[in-house]
Design a protein around this nucleic acid. Sequence first.
DNA 1: GGATAAGCGAGACGGTACGTCTCGTCTTGTG
DNA 2: CACAAGACGAGACGTACCGTCTCGCTTATCC
Lengths: 205, 205, 205, 205
Amino acid sequence: MAEQRHHGNRHGRSEDARRAVLQAADDLLVEKGFAGVTIEGVASAAGVAKQTIYRWWGSKTDILLDTFLEDAARDLAPQEHETLAEDLRAHLRRLADFLTTNDAGAVFKALIGHAQHDAAFGERLRTQYLEEQRQRDRAPLDRAIERGELPADVDVPAAVDLLVGPIYHRVLMTGDPVDDRFIDMLVEHFLLSYELGHSEPRGSS
Amino acid sequence: MAEQRHHGNRHGRSEDARRAVLQAADDLLVEKGFAGVTIEGVASAAGVAKQTIYRWWGSKTDILLDTFLEDAARDLAPQEHETLAEDLRAHLRRLADFLTTNDAGAVFKALIGHAQHDAAFGERLRTQYLEEQRQRDRAPLDRAIERGELPADVDVPAAVDLLVGPIYHRVLMTGDPVDDRFIDMLVEHFLLSYELGHSEPRGSS
Amino acid sequence: MAEQRHHGNRHGRSEDARRAVLQAADDLLVEKGFAGVTIEGVASAAGVAKQTIYRWWGSKTDILLDTFLEDAARDLAPQEHETLAEDLRAHLRRLADFLTTNDAGAVFKALIGHAQHDAAFGERLRTQYLEEQRQRDRAPLDRAIERGELPADVDVPAAVDLLVGPIYHRVLMTGDPVDDRFIDMLVEHFLLSYELGHSEPRGSS
Amino acid sequence: MAEQRHHGNRHGRSEDARRAVLQAADDLLVEKGFAGVTIEGVASAAGVAKQTIYRWWGSKTDILLDTFLEDAARDLAPQEHETLAEDLRAHLRRLADFLTTNDAGAVFKALIGHAQHDAAFGERLRTQYLEEQRQRDRAPLDRAIERGELPADVDVPAAVDLLVGPIYHRVLMTGDPVDDRFIDMLVEHFLLSYELGHSEPRGSS
DNA sequence: GGATAAGCGAGACGGTACGTCTCGTCTTGTG
DNA sequence: CACAAGACGAGACGTACCGTCTCGCTTATCC
């Protein structure tokens, strides 16, 4: 059943308009930064009337959140590996890559930035992104517990904080690169603290 | 010898005006949020002309940065304790408190938020706050190395990331409280990963 | 079919807003003088956004010019009398009244004043007001030539200068009243110089 | 006897500063127009402090009035000729030249323009320039009456209006050039209306 | 000849208005 | 009935000058 294209009619919203808006917002963000994203600018770049945007989104950050959720669902789909160490390294590597790539990373920073200014938006961001993401983050740990690689009484949410916290910290605050060395170190320290030490990161030791 | 008060003369700026602006910006931020801080609003609340603000600051975030730096210098002055565990717990406790109290915390979040939207400002924030702060953060570790409590080859900056990262993560992203339990857990894991385990946090457990 | 009122739509400007702006500008001018007419003041008094003013007018003098042109078209519509003397006296009387009444006169002086400060505006004023007005001024003379009351080779534009010059001079420079005596004198001298002397102004003498 | 130069002392103002201010105001007016004359601009161009200007003048138009009065006193000093016709032609010629030359004319227009916007200033302009000027304007007529060239009962002020009105009209309103032809025409009509006709302007006819 | 006081250059100050930008709302045809 | 178009009221932006003020320096005069 083919996509229905329409420019204003009585059969619901235009998918063309929706995609054009998301794309335009993304482009403007990458090109001119957050302040360069204005509703008027997006409308004009998308070839869409302002009212069409206001009909479907509440603010420019809502638009960006939509693009971000699409990207996250696409790029952060879970994978599985054999050992906890491998699983963690692969997962954190993908997370770090996602947060620092051009488009998704820029949108992410913009959203987190805005969340600091607007508590209600922060709450929405948490509900729509973070909660899901934390499910993905804990999966390797849950599997390790199932396999007996980790004790059953591990406080998984806290453990997730220990693992992803330093990554977000680098992305949002210090700006230092999140390279493989850093991720290896992170995983190794984590495992050591559970006395699972010497996980033998890639380059032996 | 008393402070010289003046209302504009060749000896430079009015200290009254400076303080009034910082105070007004802080008040407005806490009261109405980041979007409620406007140059016009600050000027009016401070009883100061807009031009006086533009003469000395480049933007509203510059004003907030000034108030934040004053607060940080006041509230984050270093302290020393006898053991690494105590030192770390006390230090992280104070950091967490600072980042979550009403005024300083609100300003901090606003600044970090804005830094996500404006790379140049992010760089300034790093230079003027983060670098100093990282000196304060590493002090307990440096002292522990001197005392022989930690091996001399510890990668101190990376260790700092492990310790403060999860705290900033909670403050900026999850919104979870940074309570004593969390800090104890953080420190314990950190020490365990250096095989200094069982630091016996406050309440045994 | 009634006037269509609208508050902004694709069919162009709001007539309500237009009238409110003209009225507010006029009121402010009479009440507080030229310096008291500010775009912000007009906007506020008219209950209109500044941008609406800038959308349709380029400056405060453009607004005043609009009100003036409407007034002039209404108040200076031509009339005809039987003899040149009567025609001239009536016409000059109406012109003088127009230039010295409260509203139109105040606007006129403001515009002429501004034209001295802004050559481009002067040019516009000449195109939009003066040229038409000179047509109205010369009409009595043209009719007199047709009737044979004046020789056919009279330099009409120069004659107009002789007649209206002294009136504008009093209005703009000396501030002396332009009373009937002055107008009679003006007309009499004019006619005498064409040896049509003793036009017997109202009060004999 | 040398000029006393001083930069601040207890005995009165600096002549240097005064001249620099007048010159700077004049230059700015010619170069950038009336709106380009600002107190700050004059002060800066004259190398003078704002306060020095405010100490001696009340507004920018006061400065311009000072330069204008100096120019007028220099350029409009009276002269005498043998016949009324010659006297008038020479006098009006000089007046017209004065009003249309670059510097003095520009200042004159600026002042007259401002007088339309500020009645109090208009009054001052009348007192300090116009009254004197009208004395100079009537001198040729007074001399003609003395010589018997004109009847003793001529209304001299009204006659002055007839003569200079059209000139000011051209300068301030129409922008038409005030050439010799126009002045000859003006004088001839004036004389004809006193039945002194055919004054034989320069080039016969 | 040291104190005094007015005029000066400098420039920060509290203000007002400028002209621009974007917001979010609205009204009106069109498809 | 969603859409493109775009005028509208609102209000903050950053700039330009306003007129006032304090300051420290430079003289000319006076004690």
